[in-house]
Design a protein around this nucleic acid. Structure first.
Lengths: 142, 142
DNA sequence: CATATTCCTATCATATCACATGGAAATTAA
DNA sequence: TTAATTTCCATGTGATATGATAGGAATATG
């Protein structure tokens, strides 16, 4: 499997935040209930999104999380690259291809590179706004 | 990681067989030595290729494996679909999307389906012959 | 202060991966 | 026929990633 639940849940968190369409902080508890996912697991995921500056969090009463940008300004790639351990389709491509010493002579290496580019382009040409519109027809974004 | 060593090794086996450009059976021992991969591991991989009718094997002295078709008639998809446990980029898409009960309402499902199609198209539009030519400029195929 | 909520650091069960071991069956050459 | 070769078949194993869970410290509100 390429994209793990971790990355998929991250996208669902972002969609949920966008759908609330609020300038208030949204408690993770609410997101976990709506999405029917363990709050503790979501916690570890949204932490990565905070560190990656995709969302911001505030502690204490009235705290929670909120988006930092408009949803058309988040690409799916932005979200996945933070939450997935690797977006390379093959191990040869990790660490800029330093991982494989056969890279220079390998007959399959250019092929994997092309596959990687194809996937990366696909993921970085879609925004959070695209996902919202795709299903609702509406526009939740500011 | 998306494509495991299993699938990558399978492609290297197929390339190796094509490069021998022979109507004789090629012993797996030779392939393992040339590719510097454990023969026993390759054995379990090439078994899947035999069962999938991509190659044929013969036992005993003078035995080995050989391709059944011209290499322009093998797509990379053909090879990977046999050797990888799943080519679906996300779990939601396994078993024709039956795996996920949220599929009908999920805002991300159409997106994953598109990603899957993009990848599948990429993999099924390249043949073994393409990989051989890409690196050597020559044509090993009949 | 009491409560809500994020942050931080562990731990754990399960599955998959990459590979190894041990042999049975078949084919050919001598 | 015998020995050598080689595919076929089943099962075992250590390492790693994944998908969680647990407990508590820090911080903000009222």
């Amino acid at each position: 499997m390429f994209i793990s639940t971790r990355g998929r849940y991250a996208i669902r968190i972002m969609i949920d935040l966008a759908e609330q369409n609020s300038s208030d902080f949204i408690p993770l508890k609410d997101i976990a209930e709506r999405q029917d996912i363990s709050e503790k697991y979501l916690e570890s995921i949204i932490n990565q999104l905070v560190k990656g500056r995709l969302v911001t969090g505030r502690r204490g009463k009235g705290g929670g999380y909120k988006l930092l940008k408009n949803c058309q300004d988040y690409t799916i790639y932005d979200i996945l690259v933070l939450t997935e351990t690797s977006l390379a389709p093959v191990a040869c491509l990790d660490d800029n291809g330093e991982g494989c010493r056969r890279a220079t002579t390998c007959k399959t290496f250019p092929f994997w590179k092309e596959l990687d580019q194809t996937i990366t382009q696909f993921l970085s040409h879609r925004t959070l706004a695209d996902l919202l519109e795709e299903h609702t027809g509406g526009n939740y974004c500011i």
